[in-house]
């Protein structure tokens, strides 16, 4: 009896073993996400941490809150800046790396992603200066961290830290395109850029989708840099959703926090359900032989 190979008589046992292997993940999902979400959902209809039912009051108050709207606006600006740049730069670099078989050196693009937040902030401080130290370059005004420029610097940081993920994924994706397609197009007289736009780009579109998701994921993780750059109450251009959540937690404004939690979970859920109706990920289609 071996569960690694499909066999009609063993399929039921395979499924049972599969579910057993999934149990730790399901338990962890329940403790890490599901139970906390249920608690947040229920508590979002109550006043503070008390038992007074207030219906949608917390949600309405949240949507009228200036700082929450500021955080949402900053997040959308960040995504509008980072997502297209991340995908375009990573795609062009991946094309170059794929052509020359960049190998190990391409992995170095991933280095900023593993740097701790304090090192990233230290790099920014050493390059552009702070109120305490002089920077290597005098490109920015001395009080840049309290002005509009801070948001731009933060956007560049998020881009710098997240580009490695997209690049590595796209290198693999470009490498998986069958050479026959490219050779056939070249034989028909298609130029390099024609092949890029008509063959490589469409075939790597699902991977670009994964890269976009990772860029979103990384933009949330970079809150630590924003916190170290601007503190708990930063300038408006640096104020993020995470600041909003963290500050409301510190101020024990639990009702608003729970309403925000529900909002931040339900909206992406609805968006994903909406987009998944149009965007089918081919990676989910398991081919014969197990490769995708």
């Amino acid at each position: 009896m071996n569960f690694f190979v499909k066999s009609g008589s063993l399929s039921r046992q395979r499924h049972i073993i599969g579910w057993l292997l999934l149990v730790p993940m399901l338990l962890a999902f329940m403790v890490n996400y599901l139970l906390p979400f249920v608690i947040a959902f229920i508590r979002s209809f109550y006043h503070g941490m008390g038992n007074t039912f207030v219906g949608m009051e917390n949600h309405i108050e949240l949507l009228q809150n200036h700082t929450f709207l500021l955080a949402i606006r900053n997040l959308l600006i960040l995504w509008a800046f980072v997502l297209p740049l991340n995908l375009c730069i990573a795609f062009l670099l991946a094309l170059l790396c794929h052509r020359i078989h960049g190998g190990r050196s391409s992995a170095l693009f991933f280095l900023p992603a593993v740097l701790p937040a304090v090192c990233v902030v230290e790099i920014v401080s050493q390059l552009f200066g702070t109120s305490q130290i002089d920077g290597l370059f005098s490109l920015l005004p001395a009080d840049w961290s309290t002005g509009q420029v801070a948001g731009m610097v933060f956007g560049c940081l998020v881009l710098w830290k997240g580009l490695g993920y997209s690049l590595l994924i796209l290198i693999v994706a470009l490498g998986s395109i069958p050479e026959e397609y490219l050779e056939a197009a070249a034989l028909e007289g298609a130029s390099y850029w024609r092949i890029v736009f008509s063959i490589r780009l469409p075939l790597t579109a699902p991977s670009l989708g994964i890269c976009a998701i990772l860029a979103v994921y990384n933009s949330f993780r970079c809150f630590r840099e924003a916190l170290l750059l601007g503190g708990a109450h930063p300038t408006e251009s640096l104020y993020s959703l995470q600041h909003f959540l963290q500050n409301n937690f510190s101020n024990m404004n639990f009702a608003r926090l729970e309403a925000a939690s529900v909002f931040l979970i339900v909206i992406p859920l609805l968006l994903l359900v909406f987009f998944s109706a149009f965007w089918k990920l081919p990676v989910w289609k398991r081919k014969e032989g197990g490769r995708s």
Partner: peptide
Amino acid sequence: MLPQHIARKVLYLCLLLMFLPQQALILP
């Protein structure tokens, strides 16, 4: 091990969870 339609649902769930800021669930 698992049927493909189950695996697909779990993988979509994983993708969805990557969209959530971790701080959203800190209080609960």
